[in-house]
Computed example of a mutant assay.
Amino acid sequence: VAGVLVLAESLLAFNVGDSRVFEVDPEGGLRQVSVDDSPPLPPGRRTTSVVTQTLGGSRAPSPVVPHLAAFPTAGADRYLVCSDGLTDPVPEDVIGSVLRTADDGRAAFELWKAAIEAGGPDNITLALVRIGDDDTVVPG
C-alpha cells in the first residue's frame, strides 16, 4: 500500500510493504521517497509481503508499521505512486524515460503497457500526481 496526501504547502508520502512512492525530477529521473519492507530477492523469486502476512498469510501475527515522510512542495512537483507490479518487471531507467517523454495521461498508459508487455507478474497499480498550477492525479 502506498499513497500521498497533498496539503497546502507540503506532501505526505506513506507506504507499507513494497509499493513505492517516487519523486520525479523534470528530466524523468526517479528518487524513491518510500521505504521497502520486503528484502530484495533474485529475479523470479518472490516472498509473502508484510501486508499479506498481516491479513492472514502467515501463521504468526506480523505488526504493520507504516512509513511516513513529509516534503515541502516547490510549485511544480511530480510523484509516481505504484505497486511492485510496475517496478518489478520494468526497470527504473525505462520508467524514467517514459515519464520524460510522455505527458501524464499518456505516461500512465505507457507504464501500464510496459508492465503488461514484461509479463505482468503482479497487480499493476499506478498514479501520477502533479503539484503546481493544475493539481492533477492521473490514475493508471
Rank of each mutant, 00 (worst) to 15 (best):
V1F: 08
V4F: 06
V6C: 08
A8Q: 14
E9F: 09
S10A: 15
S10Y: 05
L11E: 00
L11K: 01
L11A: 04
L12W: 11
N15C: 12
V16K: 06
V16G: 05
G17Y: 06
G17S: 09
R20M: 07
E23K: 01
E23W: 01
V24D: 03
V24P: 04
D25Y: 10
E27H: 14
G28E: 09
G29R: 15
G29D: 10
G29K: 13
L30G: 09
R31V: 13
S34C: 11
D36K: 00
P39V: 08
L41P: 01
G44P: 08
R46G: 06
R46A: 12
S49W: 04
V51L: 15
T52A: 15
T54V: 01
L55E: 03
L55Q: 03
L55K: 01
G56I: 01
G57L: 05
S58A: 15
P63Q: 13
V64S: 11
V65Y: 08
P66D: 09
H67W: 13
H67G: 06
L68P: 07
L68M: 10
F71D: 00
F71V: 00
T73N: 01
G75Y: 10
A76T: 13
R78S: 12
Y79T: 03
Y79V: 03
C82F: 05
D84F: 02
G85D: 02
L86W: 07
L86Y: 09
L86E: 01
V90M: 10
V90E: 02
P91L: 07
E92W: 06
V94C: 08
G96Y: 08
G96L: 07
V98H: 09
V98R: 11
R100M: 06
T101I: 04
A102V: 06
G105A: 15
A108L: 02
A108I: 00
F109V: 12
E110A: 14
L111N: 05
W112H: 14
K113V: 02
A114D: 07
A114Q: 11
A114S: 15
A115W: 02
A115G: 09
A115C: 11
I116A: 15
A118F: 11
G120H: 05
G120Q: 13
D122K: 09
D122Q: 10
D122V: 10
D122C: 12
N123C: 12
N123L: 11
I124C: 13
L126P: 03
A127K: 01
L128V: 03
L128S: 02
V129N: 01
D134P: 01
D135H: 10
V137Y: 05
P139F: 06
